[in-house]
């Protein structure tokens, strides 16, 4: 494979584009300048660290280290998933439910992929397991986050309708069915949209990355198709798990709607 390596000047010149964002923020008083700087700095630091970690990880090839890194990724994803929600469960429930549903989905799909489609030397080969997990996790995180956000805000907004069903003797699952359906749709729609628009509207990052690295376009496309399926499966599993966990917590054994277990953030 032959590709053009980037030097630091290349990166610095690209970073200059951020000045456009900063300028807009200042001129139109968007109040984003500070956040922008922090986000850009985070991106650089996080990616650099990931690069170093992956380099070390590839060199070592240890199942335990792979698991450790995977776990750390899931935990961070759990935090990010709930970071921007309007309403969350009180205490550790919010973090726990987000993380647990992603953990279930992303790990299942990644293991499935590594053991079946990729004839990796071993399931823990970090060169396959970690990038796959990363891509699946990123999308699952979005799905779970949107789904939980929608579920909790709809449950709050539609309290009267939900309790009307409960009061007439519906069980918790039936009473929540309309809001959980909305929430599952909200969680899965971006993935469906992404699949539909891929190739026409957007060229997916992974495929373009492979092409830039010198891979045959058709081979890169095959990879991308596989990834899209994995992402679709992961998101669906994650959204499903999130709905199960969250509706359990949103109601109790006596089939009551427990909005007192929610809290408003920000």
């Amino acid at each position: 494979m032959n590709y053009i390596t980037l030097d630091y000047w290349d990166l610095a010149s690209a970073a200059a584009l951020l000045l456009i964002n900063a300028g807009l923020s200042i001129v139109f008083q968007l109040g984003l300048a500070r956040r922008l700087v922090i986000a850009a700095a985070r991106m650089v630091v996080q990616l650099t660290m990931v690069g170093l970690v992956l380099k070390a990880l590839f060199a070592v090839q240890s199942p335990w280290l792979t698991i450790l890194v995977a776990l750390a990724m899931v935990l961070f994803a759990g935090r990010e998933a709930i970071a921007r929600q309007e309403r969350t469960f009180t205490g550790y429930w919010s973090y726990g439910i987000g993380t647990a549903s992603m953990c279930v989905a992303a790990l299942i799909v990644t293991l499935y992929a590594v053991t079946t489609q990729f004839e990796a030397r071993s399931w823990f080969d970090p060169r396959y397991a970690i990038p796959l997990l990363g891509m699946i996790l990123g999308n699952t995180m979005n799905g779970v986050s949107l789904c939980l956000d929608r579920l909790l805000s709809s449950a709050h907004a539609e309290r009267i309708a939900i309790e009307a069903r409960l009061a007439l003797g519906a069980d918790a699952r039936t009473a929540l069915s309309s809001v959980s359906r909305q929430a599952m749709r909200a969680g899965m729609l971006p993935t469906v949209n992404a699949m539909a628009a891929t190739g026409l509207v957007s060229l997916p990052g992974m495929m373009t990355g492979q092409i830039l690295a010198g891979v045959e376009p058709v081979e890169a496309v095959k990879y991308q198709i596989l990834i899209m399926f994995l992402i679709g499966g992961g998101t669906a599993l994650g959204v499903f798990a999130a709905i199960q966990f969250a509706s359990k917590r949103l109601t109790d054994a006596r089939h009551r709607l427990r909005l007192d277990r929610l809290t408003v953030k920000n």
């Binding site: 539609e158 009267i160 309708a161 939900i162 309790e163 009307a164 069903r165 409960l166 009061a167 007439l168 003797g169 519906a170 069980d171 309309s178 054994a253 006596r254 089939h255 009551r256």
Partner: peptide, 20 residues
């Protein structure tokens, strides 16, 4: 009694009705 069974026999009609 399971709560749904109870609520079908002791039914509550709130002041503001809910529609789903």
């Amino acid at each position: 009694m399971p709560a749904p069974a109870w609520r079908r026999r002791v039914v509550y009609v709130p002041a503001e009705s809910g529609w789903w």
